[in-house]
């Protein structure tokens, strides 16, 4: 592996980071939306969301990305590699984010809601001022852990030919006939990134302290 190989690997690394970040930025708010649907127990939608989440949590990202990339054009939804990758990772993390948000919503103290109602706060304001800041705080460590999980499944996007870290390593391995070195290098990149995220997560969890 020479310098040009390494710069290829780094280019792939940026794709990994970009795709994962985009997925998290889409998945976390969508997960909150789904969690709110389940929290309010909106008839009909509640059951549908529960089924969707159960399904999405079960299906492997590799299978899902093949489905999205090869089968969606057939139903009139053509996504390029990058879009398909972000979509699949976002949808995958959304299901888990929904469960994280829902856990915090279920644990949210009823008396605070009653107090807000007694103060005459309308529903939107109640959610924005009272509920959201507190559940965000409670969910932050779990959501940060989710980021590391997204990065860990992100190599799945390599199967459709998007050149992320993993795909770059495969290419370099094929060019240099030294796949082990290429994968070791990519392993170091992933491990450092994920270790950094987990360290940040522990820091945040400590700052927030034990749940009151």
């Amino acid at each position: 592996m020479d310098w040009s190989d390494f710069s290829q690997l780094l280019a792939g690394f940026w794709v990994t980071i970009g795709v994962s970040l985009a997925a998290v930025c889409i998945g976390v708010p969508c997960g909150l939306g789904l969690a709110l649907i389940r929290w309010r127990k909106i008839p009909g939608l509640d059951g549908m969301v529960a089924t969707l989440v159960s399904f999405l949590r079960a299906i492997p990202s590799v299978t899902l990305i093949l489905l999205v990339y090869f089968a969606f054009p057939g139903i009139g939804l053509s996504l390029n590699r990058m879009e398909a990758a972000i979509f699949v990772l976002a949808v995958g993390t959304m299901a888990f984010d929904c469960e994280i948000w829902r856990g915090a919503l279920i644990a949210f103290p009823r008396d605070q809601l009653d107090a807000a109602i007694a103060c005459g706060m309308p529903r939107g304001l109640r959610f924005r001022r009272i509920v959201l800041p507190q559940i965000t705080r409670a969910c932050l460590p779990a959501l940060m852990n989710e980021i590391s999980l997204v990065i860990k499944v992100s190599p799945a996007v390599a199967v459709i030919g998007l050149v992320d870290t993993t795909r770059a390593a495969t290419r370099i391995g094929a060019d240099t006939y030294e796949p082990l070195k290429a994968f070791l290098a990519s392993f170091v990149l992933y491990a450092v990134l994920i270790a950094a995220i987990l360290a940040a997560q522990r820091l945040v969890a400590r700052r927030i302290g034990a749940p009151a």
Partner: peptide, 22 residues
């Protein structure tokens, strides 16, 4: 444990797959 927690499974699979023959 920490090493495995920081590694994507596919990368670990590739390492096992290519390192064993060596």
């Amino acid at each position: 444990i920490d090493l495995m927690r920081c590694t994507p499974f596919l990368i670990f699979l590739y390492l096992v797959y290519y390192a064993l023959p060596g």
